[in-house]
Design a protein around this nucleic acid. Structure first.
Lengths: 337, 337
DNA sequence: ATCGATTGGGTAATCGATTACCCGAGTGCC
DNA sequence: GGCACTCGGGTAATCGATTACCCAATCGAT
């Protein structure tokens, strides 16, 4: 363990400078030297020490990513997309989970900064509580928020247009004939949770349909099941339930069916995200697709342009979502509208 | 950006040695010096450079983990468990996905080694093709295999006793009255895939029941659905299907029900893993539970003991799985056996 | 008073790779 | 032949934190 460039240089009978130059090709050496160094490196199994290189170059070839949790399939999908995107540029990803806890999130950011990552991509777990840690990090290193963001708009962000997505979903169920709608989402702790609710409310109000009290819990299958139970226990069902993500929608459909309701005949259900198993549940879920690949590519591209403590105004790139109609919502009626 | 210990020392009016000692507490300094250094560090917002520290100490406080993919809920669960386990010792996790590709896996190992991780935890994607990269890595740094492993037994391993788990599952469905059984698993590219099949075959042969041709594909929901379709298209259903993981089982149940078969009345279905949504599908899935927390704890503990190129024989720690009976399998009949 | 030990602080080496800087040899041109 | 360049190689500084080593001051004991 621990073959250094000095060992290679000695074995090749040249100076460390020549060895380094031969290996990196950043300055010319005679073919003779190049040959000897290459042979020595191969024989000794030399592998450059990335730590030393990072110290000298003041750059680690690493970017840090912090997401609320990797249990949620949306985040695993976006992590994979970011990793794929980075691979092209030879940078590695240090992945951390904040476990939906702003304190853990702040600690993870600290250690990523101590490890001198070249940049950060973060989906802040809490729209308010995450503010100080995120702004502090953005002051020290290029940072881009992906999907979720903190309030105030002071840091760059790439994500889907949450409000527009919910408008699509609401207009779709109304076009299918729904006269009463309800929103099943998450407590309003994240930007996604808030914007999706407000998009829902705006579209529903504009359409003039009956709007029930929203059901707010977690972004999980469990909460979807619970929300379905509550709907069943609260008198006549609404015509449509619009959910803040697919997990909730899948759980909700399951609970409604278990309680004897038919989907979509009695109730239309629409999800959000279109990752994971939306195509493979029963019935296949109508949902709003987030363009995950595009978001990841855009985040990486933007990260390359951002500088730490950038004085220029923060960019906010909202990518348009797309409605994907499957079988959990009633088809659009010819006489609608 | 870039406050160094020299800056702190200058601001405090002491040498870098004193500053370092005051901050680390590894040698005594006068209260006066301690106070001035602490104040200077706080005022300047000093944060030690982990890269420089790693170079000097020859240890990075980081361990690398390579799993086949984070789309599979079993791996996300085990990653989370390992991360929790490591957090206590203050070490960070560099997580990589091999995407089920031995070449990608080898490259990821290379970069983790270049970054001088203090250890590696790996679930090798291919029982044969992963051999050279894993053995090479084990020669250079402490390495523990978790869950999957390479053939030959040359590297340490922690996991569940796959064969024993399948025996539990088979004996359970037979106790429930099954006279014909089939295995739905994955192509035999990983140790898990092979051992689970062999456990199945051994138990079924011993019980003397009819054994159909196994269905081998991927560890995914999609493959479970496909496997279910194939069963439906191949004449009379077997009494029981034992699956290599829960994803397959959930997909298979869905396909069978869609095709009109009743679970568990017509067919018993048993999964493996008991992570993710086994409790929340319909019907709740009977499965073999992997003690993920315990496996993660054991892997981290073992990693602390392993040395690179350890001459002592490799350890193989197989933790006993536990059968969890829910509603996808017929209950054990009083008259059985 | 003197000697040895202890205490606390400073200087500089160290980790490994890169590269600024310097130097000698060779080349081309007048 | 002499001058200006180019080319390729070597020496040592650099990145930042830690610590081996050294030194001065103080204290206690004889």
């Amino acid at each position: 363990m621990g073959v250094t460039i000095h060992d290679v240089a000695r074995a090749a009978g040249v100076s460390v400078a020549s060895a380094s130059r031969a290996l990196s090709g950043r300055r010319k050496v005679t073919p003779e030297v190049a040959e000897r160094v290459a042979r020595a490196a191969a024989e000794l199994g030399y592998q450059p020490n990335a730590v030393a290189k990072a110290l000298r170059d003041q750059t680690t070839g690493t970017i840090g990513m912090v997401v609320p949790g990797i249990g949620n399939p949306f985040f695993t999908t976006i992590v994979e997309a970011v990793e794929r995107e980075l691979q092209n540029s030879g940078t590695d990803l240090l992945l951390c989970s904040s476990r939906y806890d702003p304190q853990v999130e702040a600690r993870r950011l600290e250690t990523l900064l101590a490890r001198r990552v070249d940049g950060l991509i973060i989906s802040p777990c809490d729209i308010e509580a995450s503010v100080p840690a995120v702004l502090d990090a953005a002051r020290r290193v290029p940072l881009v928020q992906l999907d979720r963001h903190i309030e105030g708009g002071a840091a760059d962000w790439v994500g889907v247009d949450d409000e527009a997505g919910l408008v699509l979903a609401v207009e779709h169920v109304i076009a299918g004939g729904a006269r009463s709608v309800v929103f099943a989402g998450s407590r309003l702790v994240s930007s996604s949770a808030r914007l999706r609710l407000s998009g829902f409310e705006r579209a529903a109000a504009r359409a003039g349909v009956e709007v029930r009290e929203p059901l707010l819990g977690e972004f999980t299958l469990e909460w979807g099941i619970e929300a379905g139970r509550r709907l069943l226990g609260a008198g006549p069902l609404p015509d449509a339930v619009v959910c803040a993500n697919d997990e909730i929608a899948v759980g909700l459909v399951r609970a409604l069916r278990f309680g004897g309701a038919r989907v979509p005949e009695d109730v239309s259900v629409v999800g959000f995200d279109d990752v994971g198993h939306a195509t493979m549940c029963d019935p296949p879920l109508s949902t709003v697709r987030q363009p995950v690949e595009e978001m990841a590519a855009e985040a990486v591209r933007l990260l390359g342009q951002v500088k730490a403590a950038d004085p220029r105004p923060a960019q906010r790139i909202a990518i348009a979502p797309r409605l994907v109609v499957r079988q959990s919502s009633r088809p659009v009626r010819a006489d609608a509208q």
